[in-house]
């Protein structure tokens, strides 16, 4: 098994990470539009979107079947399926893959839920190391406010209600997000994540992001991703057809 850090695919993988409400999805969608306009072949992979695992996850969330261990393992299953279908094939073909949340989300959440740090990292050893991992850092109160404004109610696992930290959902959510943020902060140096200040104006953040991404782009990437060649391969990943920038619409299910 090729493990984290040893991949040499011709494509590029850019991932965004951060707590809920940090603005990462907005930024990734803006980056997507720009790369498309520049003529690159871009594929998109979202957290929790494998067709093989989706029904199981949905049912387990509804019926509250998860323990921290099974929550972790089922998300790893989902991620493995996406790695094998949506991430590695385009990277091999020399395309650009954008991922909204990556292994660091699992590291942050699962450890916040009490899973062993080393164990969770070992499970995700097969992951492709991203070209750049952006971490959108927003202070806890700003992130919590953004989520509260966007969603009428918090979901059970999203709020960390399975952990019995607090009786109140909002209180539990704050505790959970605090623990997650702490884990992210540890990971910045551990995995060399690129920190973006999520409190800056959207355009400023996007400029920084494009500046960094452009260092890893070459004209060759455009040639490699010849449309005909891409069509021959079967991609299950959906390159977003029309991106509307509505940061939180429909996102709740995937978190």
């Amino acid at each position: 098994m090729i493990s984290y850090g040893y991949h040499r695919y011709p494509g590029r993988l850019f991932v965004v990470e951060g707590t809920d409400g940090s603005g990462k999805s907005t930024q990734l969608q803006l980056l997507y539009q720009w790369l498309k306009a520049e003529g690159y072949s871009v594929f998109f992979s979202e957290w929790n979107s494998s067709p093989l695992v989706k029904d199981t996850t949905r049912r387990a969330k509804r019926r509250r079947l998860f323990t921290p261990t099974t929550f972790s393992l089922l998300h790893a299953t989902d991620f493995a399926d996406r790695t094998e279908r949506d991430i590695i094939p385009p990277l091999k073909a020399g395309a650009i893959v954008l991922a909204d949340r990556y292994i660091y989300t699992a590291f942050a959440r699962d450890v916040a839920r009490g899973c062993d740090r080393a164990w969770v990292r070992e499970i995700y050893k097969f992951a492709v190391k991203p070209t750049v991992g952006f971490f959108f850092r927003a202070p806890l109160d700003i992130a919590v406010d953004r989520i509260a404004a966007a969603r009428p109610t918090l979901k059970y696992y999203e709020a960390g209600m399975d952990m019995d930290w607090a009786d109140d959902e909002e209180e539990s959510f704050k505790i959970f997000q605090g623990k997650i943020l702490e884990e992210y902060d540890h990971m910045v140096s551990e995995f060399g994540l690129t920190v973006v200040d999520g409190t800056q104006p959207i355009r400023v953040q996007q400029r920084q992001m494009r500046d960094i991404v452009s260092r890893y782009l070459k004209e060759k990437l455009k040639e490699k991703a010849v449309p005909v060649k891409m069509k021959e391969m079967k991609f299950y990943g959906t390159a977003l057809p029309n991106v509307e920038i509505e940061p939180y619409a429909g996102q709740a299910d995937r978190n």
């Binding site: 067709p51 093989l52 029904d55 199981t56 387990a60 089922l74 299953t77 399926d81 094998e84």
Partner: peptide, 24 residues
């Protein structure tokens, strides 16, 4: 209860990747 049905469906309907299968 959690994954039994999902594994059976995945094995019958789709191509289940090697890593995905182990994790499932």
């Amino acid at each position: 209860i959690l994954a039994g049905r999902g594994i059976k469906n995945a094995r019958s309907g789709h191509t289940l990747g090697r890593l995905t299968m182990q994790l499932y």
